[in-house]
């Protein structure tokens, strides 16, 4: 394993084992999370159903193709609840309680520590529902098996975009310790990814493409899976993901510098 040396694997396994063990202390939450995510999904499908049974359809998206987008959104949401939210919503706490100091004192990249320290199983139900929905929708469209293989690439890129957006917002807490709600704001805007972009007015589409790139999270991967301009879409998304990653990394370094030159 070239990219993942043994030390990193050991650290990650220690991180995830301990955070799983800690989450297990609160088992009721798991049940609540499962019911909740099922309910959220049902709500989205219900609204979609109301629209489509009127004979309306999002421009260029059949019912099953729209389900594909809902499935991709649910998958990302599940991954975010499992990997992103437990870590990035804690950055604020670290800054408020001053425990960010402990992270900076460790001989390991702080961004890596903050991003991988925790994982929570709460997103698993979402991932399972999403996979079921994706397979069902894919069979109905119908999509060839190759589409799924092709879809993995933009999904990974979406994951990276989602991570960078979230991490960038969480980073701002270094200056404004009171804004724990900031990641919630981001999350509520990301909800727009539930439906394909053509569901929204042009102004929204502009905003969600160029200002907050929600379009790349679900609509673009779904386009790739449908086999429309796949190569071009993947290239553009890769460029967006890479740019955001680099920018976020610089932003974080900059924030850290101001933390270490101002905190007391």
């Amino acid at each position: 394993m070239g990219i993942f040396p043994r030390r990193i694997l050991r650290i990650m396994s220690a991180f995830w084992f301990t955070s799983l063990a800690a989450e297990m202390e609160y088992r009721v939450n798991f049940l609540v999370a499962a019911i909740n995510s099922l309910g959220q999904l049902a709500g989205t499908l219900f609204t979609l159903n109301i629209l489509y049974r009127k004979g309306y359809h999002f421009a260029g998206w059949s019912w099953h193709e729209a389900l594909l987008v809902v499935g991709l959104f649910t998958l990302l949401d599940g991954m975010a609840s499992t990997l992103l939210s437990p870590n990035l919503s804690r950055i604020v706490q670290h800054v408020q309680n001053g425990t960010l100091d402990f992270i900076l004192l460790k001989p390991l990249d702080p961004q890596f520590q903050l991003s991988t320290r925790n994982m929570s199983p709460w997103g698993f139900p979402n991932v399972v529902f999403a996979l079921v929905l994706l397979v069902y929708a894919g069979m109905q469209v119908p999509l060839p098996a190759a589409a799924y293989a092709l879809g993995i690439i933009p999904m990974i890129l979406s994951g990276i975009i989602l991570y960078t957006l979230w991490f960038a917002v969480a980073t701002t807490t270094i200056w404004f310790t009171k804004v724990w709600n900031a990641t919630e704001v981001l999350r509520s805007f990301l909800e727009a990814g539930k439906y394909p972009m053509s569901a929204y007015p042009v102004a929204y589409q502009f905003f969600f493409t160029f200002i907050l790139p929600v379009a790349f999270l679900t609509t673009v991967p779904a386009e790739v899976m449908r086999g429309q301009h796949s190569a071009a879409f993947i290239l553009i998304e890769a460029a967006v993901a890479l740019t955001l990653f680099v920018v976020t990394r610089c932003f974080w370094k900059f924030a850290l510098r101001s933390y270490t030159s101002a905190s007391s």
Partner: peptide, 9 residues
């Protein structure tokens, strides 16, 4: 967000 969806529809 829902406004956007419904107005477009």
């Amino acid at each position: 967000l829902m406004m956007g969806v419904w107005v477009t529809a």
